[in-house]
Design a binder for these strands. Structure first.
Length: 575
RNA sequence: GCGCCUGUAGCCUAAUGGACAAGGCAUCUGACUUCGGAUCAGAAGAUUGCAGGUUCGAGUCCUGCCAGGCGCGCCA
């Protein structure tokens, strides 16, 4: 199979046809795009270029379409092209060609996906929780979406450096240290370290709001920490260590790994240099005691890079981080996955980077905040759902369903399956919708096990695995790959068209930073498969037809497994 | 006040400027002596927030308004 998506292949083909029919268009930068049709009655792919060219060519679009079709060279993949409506060109693929594509996917570990990343490198910055606070469900979107983008980029052949940019530095540590010294409970610290750190922080924070002396002391502790005071430094290291242990448990459960874990503190000794450079280049100057970069040209509000008390802030850290990454990894792009509140911040940082001469492509992939039906999360209202609890609940609900549906399965196995299904459901709930939409959290939605959900996809996969096993029992010694795939039934052809679109789905999901595009595709594929499964006999079909259909099942399984893997979702052989 | 984002059946969500707006949940009707019913087949449910505009063609682009969310020099 050619390392090119069908869209690209047909677009090139139609472009040649248009240029042959209308040679005057050459050199005018004519771009012709072919897209999947919305409905099968319009063929498999369609080209809408004729209508767009109507004015330029001063001809009826319908005539243009007819001329382009007439000029089109024969193509091995194309059964025919027809004009339709005002000037659509509907393209039908050859069924035999589709069968050969399905067979090619069957023998290709990449399922036909081109390695379009081509060795380009990307730094992916995601998850990035704050130290000394438990991860809650607000953190899951960055983690899950970022990890899917990580997997997608790697699969497409990018060199990925994933970095967990921990919030391990900042003014909160003065308050933390005061809280730890005065309120920490040794036993609680042993049992649930991060919970205790948070409790201590909240208590100290409340005190600081009422007691100016407390606040002053906290500020002094912060200054000592930043000056390298050994005792405060030791405490801070302990906070980071305890937090990392707990984050590690969550990342293990979510099967998330980072190449780098460099918190904000890693860049501390570069901050002064960043501000010096900004000043030297005339990008930032003193204003009301602070050092401020004015971004009027970019029509952005001013950005403070050094506070009037001499301390640096978030923007400074991010500038130092970019400089460090550019120098060390020379990436083609750096991608940040954070919530929507940081849009302005990153636009300011990116603008400053450009002024500093950074040419690396900088992308901010933002997603909508997660909220509860009754409003935003807040520690004060005590309605924060801890990530740990969320995952526990997901696994518990999945276990109940597994026990009901597969009572004969060994209990250990049931637990394994419940883990895969529960975590899968949680991830899919976040990955299956446009990241930028605002999410209102409900247990019902987050842990859906039917309809458009991970368990639906996992169920479809497990049924295929079961079919393949049954076939092996029924026809021992036969090699499926020795039999050709024939697409006799319309539903089989439909299935093959969808299988052939897997590379398009993966490519689009990656390029648009929307894993939801892949999730949509997989659900659509699984729906088509389920219909096929329910309505067409295969193990009972005559030999030859049986092999073709079972083989087709196998291709679907392979695409489902690979696709879900790219979303970070497991596919157990049995559920 | 300024800026960014979001408004699609009762609910949740799809839809590269293209054909009749596509699914799921819930509701209703069917399908297990037959390959796993976490399924399938079907029904019903929509002036795509409102009003203009651009275009051969607008849920999608532009302008104004309404509603909600988020942000806007010393938090990160």
């Amino acid at each position: 199979m050619k390392s090119q998506t069908i869209e690209q292949m047909l677009s090139d083909w139609m472009r040649d046809a248009f240029l042959k029919a209308f040679p005057d268009m050459a050199g005018q930068g004519l771009t012709v795009s072919v897209v999947p049709t919305g409905s099968e009655e319009h063929g498999d792919y369609q080209c809408n270029q004729a209508m767009a060219l109507g004015k330029a060519l001063r001809k009826a679009p319908r005539q243009i379409a007819e001329a382009a079709i007439k000029a089109a060279a024969p193509h091995a993949a194309v059964a025919g092209a027809e004009p339709a409506g005002p000037g659509f060109i509907n393209i039908r693929l050859r069924t035999e060609w589709l069968a050969s594509v399905a067979a090619a996917i069957d023998s290709d570990a990449r399922c036909g996906v081109p390695a379009s990343g081509d060795g380009r490198s990307v730094v992916l910055d995601y998850s990035s929780p704050n130290v000394a606070k438990p991860m809650h469900i607000g953190h899951i979107r960055s983690t899950v979406i970022g990890n899917a983008l990580d997997r997608l980029h790697r699969f497409l052949g990018y060199r990925v450096m994933s970095d967990n940019h921990l919030g391990d530095w900042g003014t909160q540590f003065g308050i933390m240290i005061m809280g730890y010294r005065n309120f920490a409970d040794a036993e609680a610290l042993k049992a649930e370290p991060v919970e205790e750190l948070e409790r201590v922080y909240v208590r100290s924070y409340e005190r600081s709001q009422q007691d100016p002396d407390w606040l002053t002391q906290a500020r002094q502790e912060l200054v000592k920490l930043q000056a390298g005071d050994p005792e405060n430094r030791r405490l801070w290291e302990e906070f980071v260590r305890l937090s990392m242990v707990e984050f590690g448990h969550i990342y293990d459960r979510l099967d998330v790994r980072f190449d780098l874990v460099r918190g904000e503190s890693y860049y501390n000794d570069r901050l002064a240099g960043v501000v010096e450079t900004l000043k030297a280049k005339g990008i930032a100057r003193e204003s009301e005691g602070a050092i401020v970069a004015f971004l009027e040209e970019e029509k952005l509000p001013p950005c403070i890079v050094q506070k009037s008390d001499g301390a640096f802030n978030y923007a400074t850290t991010d500038l130092a981080t970019v400089a460090s990454r550019v120098a060390e990894f020379k990436p083609d792009k750096i991608v940040y996955v954070t919530d929507e509140r940081q849009q302005l911040h990153f636009r300011q940082v990116f603008a400053l980077c450009r002024r500093l001469g950074v040419t690396t492509d900088l992308e901010h992939v933002w997603f909508g905040l997660m909220r509860l039906p009754e409003g935003t999360f807040s520690t004060r209202q005590g309605n924060v759902i801890k990530l740990e609890k969320y995952l526990d609940e997901a696994e518990a609900r999945a276990l109940a369903v597994v026990k009901e549906c597969s009572p004969d399965m060994a209990p250990e196995r049931q637990k394994d399956v419940a883990r895969a299904v529960g975590i899968g459901a949680v991830k899919y709930a976040d990955l299956s919708q446009n990241p930028q939409s605002l999410v209102v959290f409900t247990w019902e939605k987050a842990l859906a096990m039917d309809g458009n959900s991970a368990p639906y996809l996992q169920y479809a996969y497990a049924r295929i695995a079961s079919v393949l096993d049954k076939y092996a029992e029924q026809a021992p010694g036969k090699r499926l790959a020795d039999f050709p795939i024939a697409l006799g039934e319309p539903i089989e052809r439909t299935l093959a068209v969808k299988l052939a679109r897997f590379p398009e789905a993966v490519t689009r999901a990656t390029e648009t930073y929307k894993p939801s595009a892949l999730a949509d595709y997989l659900y659509d594929l699984a729906q088509t498969y389920s219909s096929f499964y329910q309505n067409v006999p295969f193990l009972k079909a005559p030999e030859g037809v049986r092999e073709s259909r079972v083989r087709l099942c196998g291709v679907v399984a392979q695409v489902l497994r690979q696709g879900l893997k790219l979303l970070g979702i497991e596919t157990p052989e049995r559920v």
